[in-house]
């Protein structure tokens, strides 16, 4: 994989404040979508992040795709459906729950809300926020979309169906998003085209040693045309004591919040690994700040 970089046009980080509460200021005003119907609080939270991020796309671009990662996926809706059916019987199960609660529903509703007709992809797992960004890059590079809205989103809800106790820090909802554009390769040589994704790698990590991330970074670097690049390495793992865990949104939040923060510069390797051996590495060139 040695090809033109993919430009990061804008970023969005959306999460509750230190108290963990979600007020109206964190929700999009729309309570209904003409095409989907009633929007859940979960969707209103996500849509409050997608709109500003898409603003950098510059008007209607229906061929844009969406690629999001989630760990919990449909767990909250499954819990509600099963609990209600057990307590009140099948007749109390609302028809819209299933279709609007599948793991891919959030990605699909974002597309419906913003009329984005490009590839619509949802990935599962702790590392899936970066998986989603990587696949978005592939879609752009393969000519299947001119731009992609990508990142991670998780909504832990009130819990119960999934035990959060194994995480070292509190678990909170968040969305971490980037808007990716494939026109970076068309920039003139030397032109400052803003932050960009240089390369990536995914795969199994073979050991739990201190340098488990090194093969992934090496592979990501090998796929770029940037000889001699030594990136700053950022590691994201679950269950870090005292650290708020945003699950699949965690790595994209770090990307937007730290790596692409104003004033940041140089090459960065963002490596995320979940509870298992699945891991992903994103190689990023920071630079002139993109839209927030």
């Amino acid at each position: 994989m040695s090809a033109p970089a993919i430009r990061i046009l804008s970023t969005a980080v959306h999460r509750p404040g230190p108290d963990g509460k979600i007020g109206d200021d964190l929700l999009v005003r729309d309570r209904r979508s003409p095409k989907v119907g009633a929007l859940s609080e979960k969707m209103r939270f996500l849509l409050a992040a997608t709109g500003p991020c898409l603003g950098a796309a510059g008007g209607a671009r229906p061929a844009i795709g969406v690629s999001l990662g989630t760990l919990l996926g449909a767990g909250d809706v499954a819990q509600r459906t099963l609990t209600v059916a057990r307590q009140s019987g099948f007749v109390s199960v609302t028809p819209s729950w299933y279709a609007t609660g599948l793991a891919n529903a959030a990605t699909a509703i974002v597309a419906s809300f913003h009329d984005l007709q490009g590839p619509n992809l949802t990935f599962l797992g702790y590392q899936s926020g970066i998986d989603a960004i990587i696949m978005a890059c592939r879609m752009i590079r393969g000519g299947r979309a001119p731009a992609m809205l990508a990142g991670g989103f998780d909504w832990p809800g009130e819990g119960g169906a999934v035990r959060f106790g194994r995480s070292g820090g509190p678990v909170q909802p968040a969305a971490g998003l980037v808007l990716l554009d494939g026109t970076a390769g068309k920039a003139s040589p030397g032109e400052a085209s803003g932050p960009a994704i240089l390369g990536w790698s995914q795969g199994w990590t073979g050991s739990d040693g201190d340098d488990w991330w090194a093969p992934l970074v090496d592979r990501a670097l090998a796929g770029t045309a940037r000889a001699g690049v030594i990136p700053t390495v950022h590691l994201i793992r679950p269950s870090v004591s005292g650290v708020v865990d945003y699950l699949a949104a965690g790595a994209p939040v770090h990307l937007a919040d730290v790596i692409l923060a104003p004033g940041s510069a140089g090459a960065h390797a963002l490596v995320v690994r979940g509870w298992g051996p699945a891991a992903a590495c994103l190689l990023v060139e920071a630079g002139p700040a993109c839209g927030r």
Partner: peptide
Amino acid sequence: DASILLASPGIAWGGPTAMLS
């Protein structure tokens, strides 16, 4: 975490992996 479904015994994926939905 559904991505644990990628963990087939005896296979260490040296190429890209992803769990799609």
